[in-house]
């Protein structure tokens, strides 16, 4: 509760700055229009005009909110103009990529923890792989996979996978190594096999690390899916909405797609947070 008031204040300030910025950025256009029509504008008229333009440089918050309401609630979900439809297209690619990335990251982490060779040879490359701006390859991956005959969700999911496996590897390697020497020795005195040691000790103690990584992986995965939609020629999905909006100067459409993406990201991260809380509670770890 201690955080509610400060957060609300900050959000209110941001909204206020936003309205002010909308006036400042859109005023030029409004003045030009008025000049062309040869009429004077009072200050209040000018302000109201900047908040209700068709294609403003910066749409006011309520315009974005109206657009969001129109495209989510008032449109049928199956309609191509519904933002829910586009969000679902993006989300499905995100989830597939997230699942693939988590599986890959998990497998790599187990290999790295149990095999010294992999630790020494693969781990540096896992880290190096992320210094490459992988999103730059996105268009190529999409086009090449399309040429091979793979299309639809999978190419986008591949990009999501590449972005999301890294946090999982790093987090899980740390987590699987979290048990102390003492605990590992205890397992040995119980004559535990490698499999038992993994299932009963290493895996449970890696759970907090796993959830922390999953949250980052989910956010990264969504970014991957959105960028993956750019080169397909703006067919469907939030990335396509962004691109189409930028081609036709539909700023309100861009902003509403952006907010939808933010909402999806926030929702998925919160969902993982909820699963985390329930799981850790049942395991007696929180």
């Amino acid at each position: 509760m201690r955080h509610v008031l400060p957060v609300l204040t900050v959000v209110a300030v941001i909204v206020a700055i936003w309205y002010a910025a909308a006036v400042w950025l859109n005023a030029q256009w409004a003045l030009d229009m008025a000049k062309r029509q040869d009429r004077e504008m009072s200050a209040s008229e000018l302000v109201l005009d900047t908040w209700s333009q068709e294609k403003p440089k910066l749409p006011a918050p309520h315009q974005v909110a109206t657009e969001l309401w129109k495209t989510t609630v008032e449109k049928k979900v199956t309609s191509k103009r519904s933002l829910v439809y586009h969000a679902w297209v993006t989300l499905s690619a995100t989830l597939l990529g997230f699942a693939l990335g988590t599986a890959l990251g998990f497998a790599l982490a187990v290999g790295i923890v149990y095999m010294r060779v992999m630790d020494m040879s693969v781990m540096p490359w896992v880290i190096a792989s992320q210094t490459i701006p992988i999103l730059a390859i996105a268009p190529m991956i999409i086009v090449v996979l399309n040429a091979v005959g793979v299309s639809g969700l999978l190419p986008k999911a591949m990009i999501s996978m590449y972005l999301s496996f890294f946090p999982v590897v790093v987090g899980m390697v740390k987590g699987l190594r979290a048990p102390s020497r003492m605990m590992l020795d205890q397992m040995r005195t119980w004559n535990a096999t490698k499999g038992q040691e993994f299932l009963r000790l290493r895996l449970p103690s890696s759970m907090p690390y796993l959830f922390a990584s999953l949250k980052i992986a989910m956010a990264a995965s969504l970014v991957g899916a959105i960028v993956g939609e750019l080169p397909t020629g703006a067919v469907a999905g939030l990335g396509a909405r962004l691109l189409a909006g930028s081609y036709y100067g539909q700023t309100i459409q861009i902003w509403s797609a952006l907010f939808m993406a933010a909402a999806v990201a926030a929702f998925m991260v919160a969902l993982i947070g909820l699963i985390q809380r329930v799981t850790l509670k049942r395991m007696g770890m929180s």
Partner: peptide, 21 residues
């Protein structure tokens, strides 16, 4: 106390989306 939660939230968003704007 106000900015950190907002900052953490924004850091997790697909910020790349503001590129066209």
């Amino acid at each position: 106390r106000g900015l950190l939660p907002v900052g953490n939230f924004v850091a997790a968003l697909p910020i790349i989306g503001i590129a066209p704007i």
